[in-house]
Design a protein around this nucleic acid. Structure first.
Lengths: 362, 362
DNA sequence: TTGAGAACGCACAAACATGAACATCTGGAG
DNA sequence: CTCCAGATGTTCATGTTTGTGCGTTCTCAA
């Protein structure tokens, strides 16, 4: 590789990504790190880049950085837009989504205003009104029951003076209208899990889930995949009750689920929620079965699955990316707002499966 | 190999890659390094290239490098990435998609390289190989039959060293993998049309479509909506033949479709393709019916619908936005390439309905 | 604050590219 | 058939570029 070609590659990389790491680029271009350092030194002397420890950044990025720290935030750019986000809770599932949105907000230099509703419809409405009245430029919302036609929330959002993106919930097809959505494809997540178990030789696979927004999707993907693989006869779905706060009545339900599994000679299960899954795994082991030899388990959610006594194979919904993509979409709409129309976008992101001990094949 | 041929090869190489290395080219052309040096010396004296240690660079690149040392602004105009796009045709439907992609490319300062395949599977494979070998940074492709598991194209794309976005076609769910897609929701488009007609009092609605990639989706949305509205009993689907080029045998099929409509007391139709729809509208009027009073018509596609004798209400697939969104997605992936993973994204864009005379309610 | 690990850059060695001089090849004219 | 001119290949002394070992410096996290 000729020196100029390397220089070209370096500058291209900088323009495309804003920065480069010597170790990575040296692998990609198949030249030694020293050579790259010499190249960077030369290009820096020509004012084409700025060297930093580990690599280099483009002059544009360097300037921005300087401005940012130089006047210690006095010159910090004012946010270009304010995006409201309404989530049912900030305890479960959503923290990651919020973090994704917040990462995107930082990148796009816009402000994120958060409201939570504790799964109350009235609260959703109130928060939405508050944010819109408060002058947000765009709104991201997760109505806990989806957006139903004719509901007051629907009326409000359909006429909202700002773009609205529904996050992680469906939009009734009849409404469609201008409301866009970004969501995970949980049916696909269930499919992933079932296929994973089938590949490991399981034919009798059960599903357990408490009532949650994702449950219907999970059930859908589960049944569809079982049917497609010719295992429909063994479908076992168990709806777990949501225990009252503080009560550990969930254990009862898990025990009943376990008994059913034994009774129907089920050898593997997919269970919604990794906390429940961990409790269930403990129960299974307590009853004298080995995981994964006698019973395989896939958790649907991946917050703590890695930390179970037997690390659990888990389906990880793309929470971070979800928030990130939703905020970007919302921001795009704010920017285009008065420009020519655009097609209504429905985005779905696919979960991934992380294999751990609870399904390692024999 | 004669001197002129070598000179030609040298200049071609420079134009393609911007620079060349003597050792590599001497192997490839099977001539000694000395000969190449003499060639380069001559071509340099003619001002056709600039020699550097180890090889040569094109004058364009050399100038850019030189100017680069003066002002950093010079490099702003060089494309930061090259995105390949493979479409089955550039005559029908895709021109708009391509325009959308090209608009996005301009905004993002990247180069778009287009290949068309004339609906040939071999050609799809060949073009994809060519573009990847040619060093594109990302690839957008519309395989005419979708991406089928196990096909050579699938094998190629799944292992491609660059991000791949499938445009306006499905990706087999089992494949999923890392391949992303952007597409129109044609089922929703059909739903839009049917609902529009039902709102205007029609109960017996027919669908006509020739064999095309969108046909199954149209049929799906049509049947689903008819069923949901309790009109399932009146489903009439007519598959039109694709006429040979030049022949106007399509008229026969349209006549048969018309007869069927009359026979079943159908009062409205959704027809794929606005050219066919226009021909059909003419035929209906010729037979003495009035549009929209006696018969309502919605065209699926909106290139020329506005220019029919009776301007046609049409469903407009979001072609421009499709290309735009696909290129942006692809570009994003190129930028993130080696950074942390991201969730696989499936985007669907909703068509819109443009109301015109052919369905104005009485 | 400290320490592990990564990145840095000097100095030297190895590898490689260069071009002059000379050897070899080729095809056509004498 | 021989010779010759021009093109191409080879050798080698020289200059340039690249890779490596190693002590120093930097960064991040405990």
């Amino acid at each position: 590789m000729v020196a100029v070609a390397r220089h070209d590659a370096i500058l291209r990389e900088l323009e495309l990504r804003g920065s480069l790491a010597i170790t990575q680029l040296s692998k990609r271009l198949d030249v030694s790190a020293m050579t790259l350092r010499r190249d960077l030194a030369e290009l820096e002397s020509r004012g084409l880049l700025v060297r930093v420890h580990g690599g280099a950044v483009s002059t544009a990025v360097a300037k921005q950085q300087e401005r940012g720290s130089g006047s210690a935030g006095a010159m910090a750019r004012r946010p270009v837009a304010t995006i409201g986000m309404i989530a049912p809770t900030a305890n479960y599932y959503f923290p990651q989504v919020i973090r994704g949105a917040s990462d995107a907000a930082r990148e796009l230099n816009c402000r994120l205003v958060l409201g939570t509703t504790n799964y109350s419809e009235r609260e959703e409405l109130r928060q939405a009104e508050r944010l819109i009245a408060g002058g947000v430029d765009g709104l991201m919302i997760t109505p806990h029951n989806g957006l139903v036609e004719g509901s007051p929330l629907h009326e409000l959002l359909i006429d909202a003076p700002v773009p609205v993106v529904v996050v992680e919930r469906g939009v009734d097809e009849r409404i469609a209208g201008r409301i866009e959505s970004v969501r995970s494809d949980h049916a696909y997540g269930a499919e992933l899990a079932v296929r994973h178990l089938v590949e490991r030789g399981h034919g009798r696979i059960a599903l357990a889930a408490r009532e949650a927004a994702t449950t219907p999707w999970l059930l859908d993907g589960y049944e569809r995949t079982m049917a497609r693989l010719g295992l429909a006869g063994h479908v076992r779905f168990r709806s777990l009750p949501t225990p009252a706060v503080g009560a550990d009545s969930a254990i009862d339900a898990l025990e009943r689920f376990y008994d059913e599994c034994v009774q129907h000679e089920v050898t593997a299960a997919l269970m919604l929620g990794d906390v429940d899954s961990m409790a269930f795994a403990d129960l299974v082991i307590e009853r004298g079965l080995r995981i994964p030899e006698d019973f395989a388990l896939v958790a649907y959610d991946d917050e703590f699955s890695a930390f179970a006594a037997v690390p659990l194979t888990a389906v990880a919904p793309p929470k971070h990316d979800l928030g990130y993509a939703a905020l970007r979409l919302c921001f795009d709409r704010v920017r285009q707002h008065e420009h020519a129309g655009h097609a209504v976008t429905r985005m779905s992101l696919l979960p991934t499966l992380v294999e751990r001990e609870s399904t390692r094949s024999a």
